[in-house]
């Protein structure tokens, strides 16, 4: 009796809650750390990037308007659903990053726990960085954080899941919507994560995930006038490219998280920096009197 022939998965883009192929019709071969073929991933075009920005903008009012409690519940749900697909993530991270099974497990567990950590911040960040301001006059004055809008995220190239979660979750938790350009060589965990997002009560368009070359998508995202902020972490180590993107981002004064000299270790607990990078502060004055 012959062995059952496996059904292979098609890895696609994630835009507006749907899984389209690239409009360019192109794909590229993804290999594991040893060079063996794993899959054909969609090769996102500039048009795909623009579509993703449009989807993120459309999702912004609903997601930023949801209660912090609700957003926290949804992010926690992402962790729950990821936990259920832990084995699949471990396979993909082990293959893509060339890690031992044990190390891949640790990395995946940390990624799941990172969603939980950020979920808890949803209804606390305003309590920690907001303020009531004792102005010298008969006014009640307070400052609250608000999400900045649509955030483009160049995900880390090496840490394909933990790194990805570490840059995506802090964008989403405060109510921003995101367009993520995933790791070029290790895109599979990103696409599997998009399948988790699609089944975790995250509204379509809140997170959009593109696979392909940064050279194609990043300039479009950096220069897009409807993108409010960009995280250049995925361009780590390529100072010239990062500088070009930063220059393009200056056109509409995007908030920029600069590319580090080399990709950081995402294992330690993060601080508030990434959440705070994608927040605006709104201050309200109101007179006090009879």
């Amino acid at each position: 009796m012959s062995e059952r022939l496996a059904v292979k998965k098609t890895y696609k883009l994630y835009i507006g809650g749907k899984f389209p192929r690239s409009e360019s019709g192109r794909s590229y071969q993804v290999a594991d750390a040893k060079g063996n073929f794993l899959a054909n991933a969609a090769y996102a075009s500039r048009k795909d990037a623009r579509d993703a920005v449009a989807a993120a903008r459309k999702a912004f009012p609903g997601w930023s308007g949801a209660t912090a409690y609700n957003r926290g519940q949804v992010l926690y749900r992402v962790a729950e659903v990821m936990e259920g697909r832990r084995a699949q993530f471990v396979d993909e991270v082990a293959a893509g990053e060339g890690l031992s099974r044990g190390k891949a497990e640790k990395s995946v567990d940390e990624a799941i726990d990172r969603w939980v950590w950020y979920a808890g911040w949803s209804d606390k960040i305003a309590q920690v960085i907001g303020s009531s301001n004792p102005v010298a006059g008969p006014y009640f004055d307070f400052s609250v954080p608000e999400p900045t809008g649509v955030v483009a995220v160049l995900a880390p190239q090496r840490s394909s899941l933990l790194g990805l979660v570490s840059v995506l979750a802090p964008v989403l938790v405060s109510g921003n919507t995101a367009v993520v350009a995933s790791s070029y060589e290790r895109p599979l965990p990103a696409i599997t994560l998009s399948e988790v997002l699609a089944t975790s009560d995250v509204p379509g368009g809140v997170a959009n995930i593109l696979t392909g070359r940064l050279a194609d998508t990043a300039p479009t995202l950096a220069s897009h006038m409807d993108v409010n902020a960009i995280d250049l972490t995925g361009a780590a180590g390529d100072h010239a490219h990062a500088a070009e993107l930063e220059l393009a981002a200056a056109e509409n004064l995007k908030r920029v998280v600069r590319a580090p000299g080399e990709e950081p270790d995402f294992t330690p607990e993060p601080g508030l920096g990434r959440i705070a990078s994608f927040l605006e502060t709104k201050t309200v004055w109101h007179p006090v009197g009879i």
């Binding site: 808890g120 911040w121 606390k124 607990e269």
Partner: peptide, 18 residues
């Protein structure tokens, strides 16, 4: 439920509580 959810999130964030 909301109360447990809220304080669950604080458990590993006490350093930020001021």
């Amino acid at each position: 439920a909301a109360h447990f959810f809220y304080y669950a999130g604080w458990a590993d964030k006490l350093d930020y509580a001021g």
